[in-house]
Design a protein around this nucleic acid. Sequence first.
DNA 1: TTTCAATTCTGAAACGATTCAGACAAACTT
DNA 2: AAGTTTGTCTGAATCGTTTCAGAATTGAAA
Lengths: 339, 339
Amino acid sequence: MITNMIPPDLPPKAPPTLKTIAFMTGLGISTVSRALKDGPEIGADTKARVKLIAREIGYRPNRAGVRLKTGKTNVITVVLNAGEDGSGFFSNFVYGISDALSGTSYHLVVTPYSLSDPMAPVRYIVETGSADGVILSRTQPDDPRVRYLLENGVAFATHGRTEMGLVHPFHDFDNEAFARLAVKKLVAKNRRRLTLLGPPASLTYSKHTHLGFERGLIEYGLDGVPLTSIDVDTSLMDVREASRRMAAGQFPPDGLVCSALRTSFAVAAGFEAAGLKIGRDYDLVTKHSTELQEMLRPEIISIPEDFHQAGHDTAVMVMDWLAGADPADLGRLVKPDIV
Amino acid sequence: MITNMIPPDLPPKAPPTLKTIAFMTGLGISTVSRALKDGPEIGADTKARVKLIAREIGYRPNRAGVRLKTGKTNVITVVLNAGEDGSGFFSNFVYGISDALSGTSYHLVVTPYSLSDPMAPVRYIVETGSADGVILSRTQPDDPRVRYLLENGVAFATHGRTEMGLVHPFHDFDNEAFARLAVKKLVAKNRRRLTLLGPPASLTYSKHTHLGFERGLIEYGLDGVPLTSIDVDTSLMDVREASRRMAAGQFPPDGLVCSALRTSFAVAAGFEAAGLKIGRDYDLVTKHSTELQEMLRPEIISIPEDFHQAGHDTAVMVMDWLAGADPADLGRLVKPDIV
DNA sequence: TTTCAATTCTGAAACGATTCAGACAAACTT
DNA sequence: AAGTTTGTCTGAATCGTTTCAGAATTGAAA
């Protein structure tokens, strides 16, 4: 607070506290406290009186007071990686969380981290007790953050699943179904030489995506090779160049499955640079999360993934856990929409 | 905190406080407090001893305690509108802020708001004292949020300028220079019938953009009409449809200036639907903030705007203000890069 | 020897909320 | 009439930090 610009005639008027209400009602502070949270040992009319005044003067519990006394921070932290914004993941995910938090007492704090030390923010949160709950993205099969949070008894939810045999809330998109569906769509366009540009191998959904791709190939009696030199985290320039070389090769794929919209644009650019035309020489299936896609390259076939819902879901799960729900009951796998 | 999963053999081990250090050193709590902040009335060796132990046991001041006593929240809040994500504004801006905050004691909380009530979050922050500083975007010429924050003595910075004759920190992109430069680029391509698809009229930078556009026209002896029925906040579908109709008209423009990348894609899609080809029948200049643009439509001429820097700048300004700097000295207008 | 000042440290109060252990009536038992 | 229960309400302690008003020790000046 900068105080030197408050008009001198308007005294700053400290915000009302329990003491204010206690004074106004003539009651004790502890009575007011209990009355506001409907304690059973407070008379009905007293409660009504206290609540009326509280509403009237716009009383809001002081967060620092509550936090100091109870240890409850009323904060949920989302830990995000700075690089992970494929068209709108970041904003949609965060707004999904805010939507879930709005109307509750929770504030949302955003903590970024570098891929070089994913544990740092999680350790900070645990050591300083700076949040009641945590939301993680970029989940790995054996995720040290998950283990650490469980060991320290902090509520959290992940975007993506783990494979550690540990129970925790998660929201995941069914990437296996996505990849299988993608293969199906390519086969429907008579594509036979398929390839997959998936997520980086370290993330759990890479496995699911590859599995779905393989299953799709088997289902239609095809064989294909997933790319290994590049993934959806590779810089767009490099993806374009790799795609160009691939397209210029002897047997370029005629069907591609790609796990991120922005990357698929780079692929299309690379193929175009090699003279291959989408829809004629090859087809491309990707995920999309914004309406942008059809403005840009309506020729790209896309299957929607809703990051807003992912954010909303994970936030609700964390709050439910904090409210006493069993984390074993919290988890959600979302099938791709078949449009 | 969920406590029921802490291994029973590892006692939770409460984090160290001043009391812990006081006990370990044999000093009083107040001495420890002063020693840690280099108070002048503490002996040099005592300070060294206290600091050594503090570092050793990983002491971190309890935020709630500090906040309760001093009123300082160590929080900076960025107030963002849910709809405003033109390709990456949100994530780049937020990461710019986090970058500036990392290494300081400030946490970043993200508060969304609906366009229907932009004052709500700002009022909440002031009334509950939930942040030391605020960062605003979508600044208007006569912005009630700015007036309100100044009146209440809360430090803040805006992304975009105001025109109220009030002094406050801001970061702004020189949209006048951008629009003028855009006209210049179109003229260089022999375009004569220009139009502008700018920001919504309510935002300050709309004025700047229109002014630059007008000046550009005058400079080259052209006349042109800015669009009024649509702006860069209009839904992409509507922009595409409006653009299609415009392109199908009797004298469609042959040069467009557009203030947002995603919108320019919709414009291009609309013109394409009307059979007009970019580079042949018309040209299009827009801003861009991601490498995506050249993957997608390299034919679109683009001038970069750096939202990461904008976030970084505004955050630093707020912290400087809080540290005692004169807000009159804080403000920055960034010229577009001439590539 | 007394007084004064400088140096270094400490206790207590305060910030706002919660909660435990009572206190005080009024209404019941027996 | 004495004791017990029930229904309401309250004081005090506590969370971790900061800060004000002293206190204790030392050395020097008078």
